[in-house]
Amino acid sequence: MVRDGRMGGAVLRSLSRLAEGYAASACAGLPLGIAIARSRPARVAIRPLVLGLQALPSICWLPLAVLWFGLSEWAILFVVVMGSLLAVTISTEDAVSAIDPLVLRAAGTLGIKGPRFFGGVLVPAALPGIVTGLKLGWSFAWRALMAGELLFGAGGLGQLLANGRDLLDVPQVMGVMIAIVAIGSAVDQLLFHFAEVRIRRRWGLAEAT
């Protein structure tokens, strides 16, 4: 399976889908989270919706996605986005709400306003929490993608797994499972763990070792 290139192709396919979907949800989730934390109307209007929808397992979006987008890439991407967007939004909102009010007051008295305030104070101050949210969002996105591919059958690791079941090929099934775990924890450990530790150290939240 690895040798005939099916595995490599499936991994690439899955990862490129994930990259698109995850990027979209990070780009949408961050501003959404900040908006909910900072503006009262947004909090009143969107927050209950976000919290409620989070209770919905992401794969439950698949039927709707198929009806809306047909049997296309868009349907799977939609599932991935819906799976991770809410996690990113909620963590960002938490992180922004938990910013030390003293930092915000200091920014106020120093006259820091507008885009400089958001980019230079709000986001950096919330960054440790935001990275944790992005990590959470990533693992949700990965799960949603696998579930989507498994049911939808549009290539990728998920479909390889389904094929293995149809062919009663236990080694293939287990091999794909191992690949899914390996990729998931590799990104988690290498990318996010590294970023998280560095940020926590710079922010003075963790002891430098």
């Binding site: 007051r105 200091a106 008295t109 120093l110 006259g111 101050a125 960054l127």
Partner: peptide, 18 residues
């Protein structure tokens, strides 16, 4: 409202930690 013309220095240093 606050203004940099009336600079407030707090009980704590209130620096930007990053």
């Amino acid at each position: 409202g606050p203004s940099p013309e009336r600079m407030l220095v707090f009980q704590e240093p209130a620096l930007f930690p990053w």
